[in-house]
Nucleic acid binder design. Sequence first.
DNA 1: AACCCTAAACTGGTCAGACCAGCAATAAGA
DNA 2: TCTTATTGCTGGTCTGACCAGTTTAGGGTT
Lengths: 253, 253
Amino acid sequence: MGISKEISYKLEHLILEGGLAPGQKIPSERQLSTKLGVSRSVVREALHELQARGVIETRHGKGSFVASIVPESGAQGANSPLMYLYQGHTRTLYDLLEVREQLEGQAAFLAAQRATNLDRHRLTRAFRALESTDPLSNARPDHGFHHAIVEASHNPILVHILSGLKNMMLLTVQASVSNLNPKEDMRRKIMGQHRQLYEAIMAGKPDQARKVATAHVRFVRQTMKEMEKEGDELLRIPAPEDLADLLNDSGSP
Amino acid sequence: MGISKEISYKLEHLILEGGLAPGQKIPSERQLSTKLGVSRSVVREALHELQARGVIETRHGKGSFVASIVPESGAQGANSPLMYLYQGHTRTLYDLLEVREQLEGQAAFLAAQRATNLDRHRLTRAFRALESTDPLSNARPDHGFHHAIVEASHNPILVHILSGLKNMMLLTVQASVSNLNPKEDMRRKIMGQHRQLYEAIMAGKPDQARKVATAHVRFVRQTMKEMEKEGDELLRIPAPEDLADLLNDSGSP
DNA sequence: AACCCTAAACTGGTCAGACCAGCAATAAGA
DNA sequence: TCTTATTGCTGGTCTGACCAGTTTAGGGTT
């Protein structure tokens, strides 16, 4: 394997094994290059890879630091390959919701079929919390409600995938949810959908639960699509159109 | 933002937006550097980042290629938390197929909607390969066929999730498919389902495609109720070297 | 003509040294 | 003492060279 990979592997291993604590500064590129006996290019690429994976953070003029392994979200889905891949891309949101539509539907279906008394109790509590929430900070209860449904499906695979997707959504367009709800009209509709979903599951009607759940996600996706007109210049980057032919003209013999 | 980040973002954006298909070769570093007006170092670091994220694969002397996220490379998907958790447990298979049922259905639906000519060509080739296969070694063509469908859906999230699930299935009960097919009766039924699925997608009938796909997975799940297999393989980790002191001795003034 | 082998001409991988830009501590001047 | 300019760190970019795999086109040889 390439030297670069070896270096990045060594560093990552060191960091993860506890040799370097989060927040700690790692040696400068020039120091590493001399000490490791490789060129600075190699060190840079290795660091760049670690940076891309979220292991370290680099600041111009200061140095590189071990990333503070972050927050409370837990290790499980946070550093999935999916995470790194798509966050920040607008279209990702639609892809995400396209998948979620099916999975939430299935989760609701199974939940209506297999929910135990404990599940129903949790679900009810989550639903009540959802009802008595001010429109602004309702990202958390919404998450809790859907999560309760998924767990009631008793399918751990489903739980994992959906929690991963949910995390990705939060990273991709965190603001969109809070942008969507404030409109009183929207909020009422979503509230109604949640209630329908809740009642279908509690009544043990799988097919209806699926129908309502998919419709709910589809509704969110469509209204979110309409809102896209405005808004996001945040991560916008010069038009990729002229890049396309650039890439194409080398593909054909 | 650094130039490097912009470049990697541009390329990633292009790839995800479908400008570059999986497996396709991207221009050489030198070409990119001149066309984009930056140095080769920057291009290298950008590519390196994409490589670290699994978006592209790079081979010495050949070039860089858009990663067709799957099979034998398996570096990142293999050690997903999910892997360790569930492999070997029988029930996992049902959970897996319960989820797959929905996702394959959605993939077929989207494929019937959005397949390009190139997609149709690939799909046809995969289907032909599936037809002319002896029952024994048909795990690979089956994988190829379904993978072609998913990629035709043009939803990278779907591609990733399904490829992950497929890997898990392979680990969980790899032999099951080849145990299922040898029965001539089964094989013919599955063959018919594949043909129906193929034709629905090629004819551009989304709803029918979804129906057939979900029915197919459900059929497999139901007829697969007596399998139990093994599958144990882990990634070994090379011996870590003691450059810990190397890193430590630069931390103190 | 068909074959094999070698010599370019690609590709990515590494190296060296230079210069620019952000940052921080220190020395110089008020 | 306070302010300012210098100096010396840091990462970021550029250049041009060379090494190492891969492919391909020629040029023999049979």
